[in-house]
């Protein structure tokens, strides 16, 4: 049983990009700022001319928790799993799991890079793994 994001007009481009293994954030053509999660207008200059800007996929762990007690049947077979707030190098923060290492090896400030996890045939979601080398 996979948990997949419901998509709205506002959020579909984000997930569509993820489906093509691209990480994007919403971007204002008026004032050149980016943010996440998506909003109907730029929260800074209120422009409606928005597009989606590719993110480099590098970031650091802003905070995390190791979930040891599942609160939903759909994740019962996944515990323990790491949920993190990842701060992208470009600034915005996104929620993701940290894959590719033991929960005990995760730390705040740890450099990570995006990977894409296919949750169904049609849907892929951004996830993060430890960045190689000394800090990505």
């Amino acid at each position: 049983m996979a948990i997949i994001p419901g998509m709205t007009e506002l959020t579909r481009p984000y997930w569509a990009a993820a489906g093509e293994h691209r990480l994007v954030t919403q971007h204002c053509r008026g004032c050149d700022r980016i943010w996440h999660p998506p909003l109907p207008r730029c929260p800074h200059c209120h422009a409606t001319e928005l597009d989606w800007r590719p993110a480099g996929g590098e970031g650091t762990v802003y905070s995390y928790t190791v979930v040891e007690h599942a609160t939903h049947v759909a994740v019962a077979d996944q515990v323990p799993y790491v949920v993190a707030i990842v701060e992208l190098a470009e600034g915005p923060r996104i929620v993701a799991n940290i894959r590719g290492c033991a929960p005990a090896d995760v730390s705040v400030g740890m450099p990570v890079r995006v990977v894409f996890e296919q949750v169904t045939d049609d849907v892929a979601i951004p996830q993060f793994v430890p960045a190689e080398g000394d800090g990505g």
């Binding site: 996979a2 997949i4 994001p5 999660p37 759909a74 996944q78 169904t120």
Partner: peptide, 25 residues
């Protein structure tokens, strides 16, 4: 019956697929 689709509401669709679902977490 096979998948759970998280309706977008207060950015839940950006957290639930990652198992971030309850206040304690």
């Amino acid at each position: 019956g096979t998948h759970i689709v998280v309706p977008e509401e207060e950015n839940r669709s950006f957290s639930w697929p990652y198992g971030l679902m309850s206040p304690g977490q």
